[in-house]
Amino acid sequence: MVRRWKSAGFLAFCALLSSTVAVGQAEAQAGNWQNTFTLTYEPTAEKPAFEKIDVGEVLTDAKFRLDSRRSCGDALRGTRNVNAKYCFDRSDASVNNWIPQGVSHVSDAYDAEAWTDAEGRVWKPLLVSWYQGQGKKTQSRITVAAPREAGREPVYAHLDLVRGAEPSNVPIHAGGIAWYGQYVYVVDTYVGIRVFDLADVRSRPTGGYVLPETGIWRAKNTQGTTGACRGRNPRPRFSSLSVERTSHRMLVGEFCGDRDNHNRNGRLVSYQATGTLLGPLANGAQVRPTGALNLPVKHVQGVASDGRWYYLNQSYRRRPPRSAPPRMYRAEPSGANLVERGRTSGAIGGEDLSLERGRGLLWSVTEFQSRGRMIYNVWRAGF
């Protein structure tokens, strides 16, 4: 049965299934990493008093179009196993200040891999996160896109991520997102995971839409960038996020090797999740991960899993050499590590990953204006 936004329960985390735990001598298991990635929930007290609007209305009235026919750059040059690509509207493709990052398909959110709006229309959308600016001037938004709908033109619309009664934009990089039930989880690199409710989209009186923050899952040991990707048990970095639907896990990936210790690849940390009501998002609630695996390569922008295999998107490789082409990898757990079992060429500027289970497609987005910004998908079986 296709589920609606309002029918989904609260997200809760509990202990990861013991079969995924790999305790060993590798760095992912060193020290006190479980406490490092323990999260504490903080609800956001106030929201703007704007009129609520159903996401189906947002898509029906969307003014931006996706184009699968025109050329929008060479970001997919050399990329193998491409099934489809969708160019953003020229206003988004040509403006450098907004940069796409995270992707999550409706397949992450519901078993049926589809959503029905308030008018009974069935959609198969995906979400894309963006950021602009740096530091305290950073802003973020999410795009609701419907690239593949029978009899409908491919469209998309933007939702600004905001918090507070007098809403201010949420200043995060938004490097990865996970759509799970009615909620959208957005990583905040050195803080944790921010929570947004897709049943709570609101229409701004001056035009456009906002998505108010519901709360934050905050990590304990987040004190800025110092120590990230360094040492035996570095401070956590929340770079990418995905849903492994077969066992209902959330996967947090660390992007390492850029301006950090180049001897470290980063970790992939797992949390158990469920769409049934195991408890509300309550102030002071805590969740602890039980699984952590060392990534096999540096510069991992996105990770997706089908329950057996893990798929990695590497946007570029600086050493050696800097001009080396990006790759996608297939890997599996071995002890405390993810071990490469296959590779193929990837997109230039490829970012977060999301698995559309039914068709076996990996969705992503490219970020560089100079090479072209687009949503694309590749066949999972191509490794």
Score class of each variant (00 low, 15 high):
234 P>E: 06
235 R>S: 13
236 P>C: 01
236 P>E: 03
238 F>N: 00
238 F>D: 01
239 S>K: 02
239 S>E: 11
240 S>T: 15
240 S>W: 01
240 S>F: 02
240 S>R: 00
241 L>S: 10
242 S>W: 09
244 E>H: 01
248 H>A: 14
248 H>D: 14
248 H>F: 09
249 R>Y: 03
249 R>V: 00
251 L>D: 08
252 V>A: 15
253 G>K: 02
253 G>C: 02
254 E>H: 01
254 E>I: 04
255 F>E: 11
255 F>P: 02
256 C>L: 15
256 C>F: 11
257 G>I: 01
258 D>K: 10
259 R>N: 14
259 R>A: 10
260 D>V: 11
260 D>Q: 14
261 N>V: 06
261 N>D: 15
262 H>G: 04
263 N>D: 14
264 R>K: 08
265 N>W: 00
265 N>Q: 08
266 G>P: 10
267 R>Y: 13
268 L>S: 11
268 L>W: 07
268 L>A: 15
270 S>D: 04
270 S>A: 13
271 Y>F: 13
272 Q>R: 15
273 A>E: 05
274 T>H: 05
275 G>D: 12
275 G>Y: 09
276 T>C: 04
276 T>F: 04
276 T>A: 08
277 L>G: 05
278 L>I: 08
280 P>T: 15
282 A>I: 07
283 N>M: 07
283 N>V: 07
284 G>K: 10
286 Q>E: 13
290 T>D: 10
291 G>D: 09
292 A>E: 08
292 A>D: 05
292 A>H: 07
293 L>I: 06
294 N>T: 09
295 L>D: 04
295 L>M: 05
295 L>K: 06
295 L>C: 06
296 P>H: 10
298 K>N: 08
299 H>T: 06
299 H>W: 09
300 V>T: 12
301 Q>A: 15
301 Q>S: 15
301 Q>L: 01
302 G>T: 05
303 V>A: 13
303 V>C: 10
304 A>Y: 08
305 S>P: 00
306 D>Y: 00
307 G>Y: 02
307 G>F: 01
307 G>E: 02
308 R>H: 10
309 W>E: 07
310 Y>T: 01
310 Y>P: 00
310 Y>V: 03
310 Y>L: 11
311 Y>W: 01
311 Y>M: 09
312 L>I: 04
313 N>F: 00
313 N>E: 14
313 N>T: 03
314 Q>P: 07
315 S>K: 06
315 S>N: 15
315 S>G: 02
316 Y>H: 14
316 Y>N: 12
317 R>I: 09
318 R>N: 05
320 P>W: 01
320 P>M: 04
320 P>Q: 08
322 R>G: 04
323 S>P: 00
325 P>R: 14
327 R>G: 05
328 M>F: 06
328 M>N: 13
329 Y>G: 02
329 Y>R: 10
329 Y>E: 02
330 R>C: 15
331 A>L: 13
333 P>F: 04
333 P>G: 04
333 P>Y: 04
335 G>W: 03
336 A>Q: 03
338 L>W: 03
340 E>D: 06
340 E>S: 15
340 E>K: 12
341 R>I: 14
341 R>S: 12
342 G>Q: 08
342 G>V: 13
343 R>W: 12
343 R>F: 03
343 R>K: 08
344 T>D: 08
344 T>L: 10
344 T>V: 05
344 T>G: 12
344 T>W: 10
345 S>H: 10
346 G>A: 07
347 A>D: 08
